[in-house]
């Protein structure tokens, strides 16, 4: 199954512990449905089509029928009680990670993108990024999940279940990836017009390459030494976006300090290329109707200068 959001390839301990319960219940359901269809089918076929007098009514009490009801109900109760126990056991085992979490990322859902703030750790400073998370393989990570406007839901199917992002409230979750790879995530609580286009990516990589990524992310942007693009950017985009190391310190939109280190833009809608960036900046609402980013009027040369500047934000 190629579906990137599918539940068929759990890749971390939380999802892997849920999977047997989920699939066990699904197979059990299929079994029950088949049994009921068989019972119904047999009842329909074997009972005939009224060969006898059509006015005759079956009047004998069906003791067999009552016994079958009691028996089947009794069996169902037993199965359901087992399922309750299995559920509670899975709840207990997924409530805490296999090892203490290594670090914390604050997740904040916004309409319609994800703000990630890595908290300071072991002397390294924290930093902000958006829409793309990196985590080290084999290490549990703590997430403190909230929202800036309406309710969203943080979900990476391959790694674990959903946690709602609710404004005014912080929900704790932990996730761990056991295999390197890129895992897709998706907002899964209706949050307005562009709920369908609020994806996120989680890149799980070996510890060493994660450390390299993290330390690179904490760096401020290289000085652009007076290039036009930076000036245009700060003037037109700096009220909403931050590029650390410049005068752009807006917090309404994603932090763009290392925009080029991300593989997608617009919360997963488009791949991160110069052409797509151009289209997005020129007309965000044409691509994502309702997006909160306004179409800032830039002339052709201004747009090109900004794009060139952005391409330096690796």
């Amino acid at each position: 199954m190629s579906a990137p959001l599918g539940l068929f390839h759990p890749a971390g301990p939380s999802a892997q512990q849920i999977a047997p319960l989920l699939w066990g219940l699904i197979w059990l359901s299929i079994l029950v449905v088949v049994l009921i269809i068989l019972a119904l089918g047999l009842a329909l076929i074997s009972r005939g089509r009224g060969r006898a007098d059509p006015l005759r009514v079956v009047t004998e009490e069906s003791r067999r029928g009552l016994r079958w009801i009691y028996g089947a109900t009794g069996a169902s109760v037993l199965v359901l009680l087992v399922l309750v126990g299995w559920t509670w056991e899975t709840m207990a085992s997924t409530s805490s990670p296999p090892a203490p979490t290594a670090f914390t990322v604050d997740v904040s859902g916004a309409q319609w993108w994800w703000r990630f703030t890595y908290e300071p750790q072991n002397g390294t400073p924290g930093f902000a990024t958006a829409n793309e998370l990196h985590i080290p393989v084999g290490v549990p990570v703590r997430f403190r999940i909230s929202a800036e406007d309406v309710i969203h839901s943080f979900w990476i199917p391959a790694l674990g279940g959903k946690t709602d992002a609710i404004p005014g409230q912080v929900n704790d979750a932990w996730l761990e990836a056991d295999k390197p790879g890129t895992y897709s995530g998706q907002c899964s609580e209706y949050c307005g017009q562009e709920h369908a286009e609020m994806a996120l990516l989680v890149v799980a990589e070996p510890q060493a390459s994660f450390d390299a990524w993290r330390s690179h992310q904490t760096a401020t942007a290289a000085p652009a030494l007076g290039a036009t693009g930076e000036t245009v950017f700060v003037q037109n985009c700096g009220r909403c976006h931050t590029v650390r190391g410049t005068a752009a310190t807006g917090m309404l939109g994603p932090d763009l300090t290392h925009l080029m280190s991300r593989s997608t833009i617009a919360a997963g809608m488009l791949s991160n290329s110069r052409g797509n960036l151009a289209g997005w900046i020129a007309n965000p609402n044409g691509i994502k109707p309702g997006a909160k980013m306004p179409a800032v009027p830039l002339s052709g040369p201004q747009l090109q200068a900004v794009l060139t500047y952005l391409s330096t934000l690796t």
Partner: peptide, 18 residues
């Protein structure tokens, strides 16, 4: 039966809102 599947809270955390 599909309701029974969603009754299990950990499983529901995967299939709710899908």
């Amino acid at each position: 039966m599909s309701g029974v599947v969603t009754a299990a809270a950990p499983a529901d955390l995967q299939i709710t809102d899908t």
